[in-house]
Simulated scan of single mutants.
Amino acid sequence: MAANDATETTLDEPTQVLEFDIGDERYCVELDAVAEIIDRQSVRALPDTPPHVVGAMDYRGVTTTVIDTASLLDVGSNPDAPRVIVFDDGDEDSKVYGWLVDEVERVADIDPENVDDAPFGGDHTKGIVRRDEGLVVWVTPPTDGSE
């Protein structure tokens, strides 16, 4: 799937997402993509990495790339965020990586009628979810954590 295809996907039925905060903004990702939510651990720097890569940590014996999610999504920078959303599709050849977030809020169902196209956000933004409490930016994690 091309990166832009994620923003063109039409939802036919409710989808479960994990909602999280970065700064004052609320975001969500499809729950199926999430392996686990953990507290931030010790991270060691990696040479020659993109600016949004904070470093690597050990996650269940696997070297895991740690991403400054705010920087990746171009909404600032927070390399010291306390929580990590770990993405691992279980494929031996894929990288395990974690997104740094300020807080994980809840698992929620998204009704397709409440999702609008995103007017911003580039390749990682799937849509904007309208909720009574405000808007939630639906993002799609990169397939290898380094995009």
Rank of each mutant, 00 (worst) to 15 (best):
D32A: 09
A33P: 02
V34Q: 07
V34A: 13
A35M: 10
E36Q: 15
E36M: 11
I37F: 05
I38M: 12
D39V: 13
D39G: 15
R40N: 05
R40A: 09
R40Y: 12
Q41R: 15
Q41N: 14
V43H: 08
V43S: 11
R44A: 13
A45F: 10
L46D: 02
P47E: 14
D48C: 02
D48V: 04
D48M: 08
P51G: 04
H52S: 00
V54I: 13
A56G: 03
M57T: 13
M57V: 03
D58V: 08
Y59T: 08
R60H: 12
G61H: 04
T63A: 11
T64K: 01
T65V: 12
V66N: 01
V66C: 07
V66T: 03
D68R: 00
D68F: 00
D68Y: 01
L73Q: 00
L73C: 01
G76P: 07
S77W: 11
D80G: 11
D80A: 15
A81C: 07
A81P: 06
P82G: 10
D88R: 07
D88W: 07
D88M: 06
D89I: 00
D89A: 04
E92M: 11
E92G: 07
D93T: 11
K95D: 02
K95Q: 10
V96C: 06
V96T: 14
G98N: 02
W99M: 04
W99E: 00
L100C: 06
L100Q: 02
D102G: 13
D102W: 08
E103Y: 05
V104A: 10
E105F: 05
R106C: 14
V107P: 05
V107H: 13
D109G: 12
D109F: 08
I110W: 10
D111K: 05
P112C: 02
P112M: 06
P112Y: 11
E113G: 11
E113N: 09
E113V: 02
E113K: 15
E113S: 10
N114L: 08
N114K: 07
D117P: 10
A118G: 12
F120S: 13
F120A: 14
G122I: 02
D123H: 01
D123K: 06
H124V: 01
H124G: 03
G127F: 04
I128Y: 13
R130D: 14
R130T: 12
R131I: 10
D132T: 10
L135V: 12
V136M: 14
V137M: 15
V137D: 06
W138G: 04
W138R: 04
W138N: 07
W138K: 03
